[in-house]
Nucleic acid binder design. Structure first.
Lengths: 208, 208
DNA sequence: ATTGTGGCATAACAGCGTTATACAGGATCC
DNA sequence: GGATCCTGTATAACGCTGTTATGCCACAAT
């Protein structure tokens, strides 16, 4: 048994951080055990003692990415206007993706990276992120901004639209448009919001 | 100079097809020059004489994928109801993605595959696909189903929603939902359509 | 018949993920 | 205090990868 690990080994933390850095700086192809090892100042064996292999290390990095995303979304202030909050969440979501392009690509990318494939753990992590959207959606329904509906399904619609825009933007398909956020994402959200509001009865004020 | 290449060399065609097959059957990691060579019955050099390297071969496969997608969308019949056609286009788009999961992932995936990165060529190919959506959107505006607006921007909204849903579905984030198409994609399109229609004046009937 | 050239097979090189092995050093026990 | 174990790591090797240099061979042109 020996001593109990009370704190996370420093090398493990440093490996994750070095991997995230390498990913951000030079892209997925730079993520190799040897580069990681030399970057942290150890041997490639560290990857195997702490993670079991490169795919598991990538998974740890992805977990970190989801945690960071959740924190980024949680930092968005909650106002009385739930629909406005959803817009702000969307903006924060995109901003996080833009600031961690390569990481976002690995998190949601369908192409594999070094044998890494999404695991149940990631799907759950993604669902936590998703829950923030569901909560805001429910508030919008409670306030009468959206008509009553299955909040999960509605949030999934919002997520689809958001994620699709971000992916296409990251892939470079919107480079023709001057300001894709103003020209596409904002109207997309507004139009979808109009459709989601149709038939709803505003709670507070009258409806003459 | 010698003889002029009038027809595409057979080996080149077979390499592309073998690559697509290998990709579909065993995923991206199976795409190696040696496996391709043995599959086609040649040496790895063929990849370099005909394509210049693995990334360029992948690019040829992606080109093929975009061509196939465009053909798939072009096969959707055009009716009098442009909005209905857009729905059918969306369905065909998703179906194509589902039938060529790995290929779709490489086409739109941001993670690289064997050093392959999207080129200008692909962005153009993607824009051709996009044009089909733009055309249907313009018809919907002309018919008064959507209110007048920049058709490109509106089509980009539709594409974002569609692509986002497909990506999340492929990534497995909708596995909780029984039938994500019915529960998410369809209402997403309907709600977005309602928002896009708001303020439009039907063409046929009067506009007093 | 000779020459030249284009296409391909072979072999090598550097790098990859992974694994087996050996060693160092601290904790544990007698 | 000395022997023992165990954990973490460095080294080296294996089989794989993409790529390139080399050489051969068949066919077109002269």
């Amino acid at each position: 048994m020996a001593r109990v690990r009370t704190v996370e080994p420093e090398v493990r933390r440093r490996l994750i951080e070095a991997a995230a850095q390498l990913l951000a700086d030079e892209g997925p192809s730079a993520l190799s055990t040897r580069r990681l090892a030399s970057s942290v100042g150890t041997s490639t064996m560290a990857v195997y003692t702490y993670f079991g292999g490169l795919p598991q290390l990538v998974q740890a990095v992805v977990d970190e990415g989801f945690t960071r995303l959740a924190a980024h979304l949680a930092a968005v202030p909650r106002t009385d206007d739930a629909a406005h909050d959803l817009l702000q969440l969307g903006w924060a979501y995109r901003q996080n993706a833009m600031e961690n392009r390569e990481l976002y690509a690995v998190m949601f990318g369908t192409a594999s990276l070094g044998g890494y494939r999404r695991s149940e753990s990631e799907l759950e992590q993604g669902r936590y992120t998703f829950d923030v959207l569901v909560a805001a959606t429910e508030r919008a329904m409670a306030d009468g901004q959206f008509r009553r509906d299955d909040a999960e399904c509605v949030a999934a619609q919002l997520w689809s639209a958001l994620h699709g825009f971000v992916m296409l933007e990251l892939a470079g398909f919107f480079e023709a448009h001057q300001d894709a956020v103003e020209a596409v994402l904002l109207p997309l959200f507004v139009n979808l919001g109009v459709g989601l509001a149709a038939g709803a009865s505003q709670r507070s004020a009258a409806t003459p």
